Amino acid sequence: MIFKSFEINNKNFSEQNIFLVYGENEGLKKDIINTISKKKNIEFKQYKFDEEEVNQKTEEIYNLIYSGSLFDKFKIIIINKASDKIYNFIEDIIDKKLQDCLIFINSSVLDKKSKIRNLFEKEKQVVCIPCYKENEIGLKKIIFEKLKEQNINISQESINLLINRVSGDRKNLENEINKIISYCHNKKTISFDEIKILTNLSDNFENEEIVNYCLSGENKKLKRMLEENNFSTEDFFILLRILNKKILRLINIKTLQQYEKNTDAVLNQIKPPIFWKEKEIVKKQTNLWNLNNLNKIMKQLNEIELLSKKNNEKGVIIVLDFLSNICFQSKNSF
């Protein structure tokens, strides 16, 4: 049974447990999987496999799908990089009734002759959702809604630049929007020139990832990232803004922990909400840092930014040393 991506929000899918999401729009596929998973309104455990693993561990995966567990009341299984090579496996699980389980088959572009595509299009008990590249109207809507939530103003010229740079992929767009939100901490407007600088870092590692490694004490990974990329002074100012935002968030978490010891409960209170994929990283950072040292870094951060602006030629070295020192301190915070 075929559904278009925009129809998903209005469907219940109470009778369907197996979904094929295919196409080149990785961001849209991720959103669809999350949306359908949340419709169950129940706590679940997620498992991910790729096609090769399914073919190598077929019996184990069958057991996972059909065996009950005292600990995992509901399971969501995602099979990535799927093709016609697992057609028999898919056909077999479609014939059997699933309980307490959702299965998502994630494929890239599938042509009309694809066996799994034809299977999902024809069978009524399963769902097929094509995920093509976003058009300009859809991308503009996402930009407008996401930035409106954060009260950030952006020009039409800047919107057009973003659309040109994300190549029709929602995942790429979300990455760029997250950069803008991080950069605009306490700012309500971002200029075209600032957007141009921010979105020009696509060949470098994600800035969020660099800062996360810094605060998580991942010294080797941080060193490799910084060595393999060519950063300008402007790039480091962007990193400092992201660091500022993440330090403030950790200070907020540590303050709340004085009254609530359950870390998950505290993380669920944080605004804006922490992205699900970042929660484990934030937990690790929370365990590594104490409130006193976080406040010291906040004070140092403002001093470093001023110092690097005054010494433009040495700005990159100043910020590099600062990030490396924070990474070292994370191991010795308590």
Rank of each mutant, 00 (worst) to 15 (best):
I159P: 04
R241A: 08
I77K: 03
K254E: 09
I77G: 05
D264F: 10
I304W: 01
L147Y: 12
I2S: 02
Y213H: 13
F231P: 01
I36S: 07
K73T: 15
I94W: 06
S69L: 11
C327R: 01
K196P: 00
E227R: 07
R170H: 09
K39A: 06
N106P: 04
E123D: 12
K277R: 08
D72P: 06
K261Q: 14
I90D: 05
E91S: 14
K271C: 05
Y259S: 12
K188E: 14
I281V: 13
K75T: 06
S330C: 00
D169A: 03
L226C: 02
F89C: 02
E303F: 14
F71L: 14
Q300W: 11
Y66N: 06
F192Y: 15
E53K: 15
C327Y: 02
G168K: 06
I181F: 03
E313H: 10
I326F: 00
N311L: 01
K29T: 11
I116L: 02
E209T: 15
N10E: 15
T35C: 08
E136T: 14
E174I: 12
S167L: 14
S308I: 03
Y47F: 15
N252K: 11
K296I: 12
N164S: 15
N118L: 04
Y87W: 06
K146S: 15
G27H: 03
G217H: 06
Q258V: 03
Y22E: 11
G138R: 02
E26V: 12
N219K: 15
E280I: 11
C214W: 01
L301Q: 09
D92F: 13
I2R: 10
D235M: 01
C184H: 04
D50R: 02
D95E: 14
K97T: 15
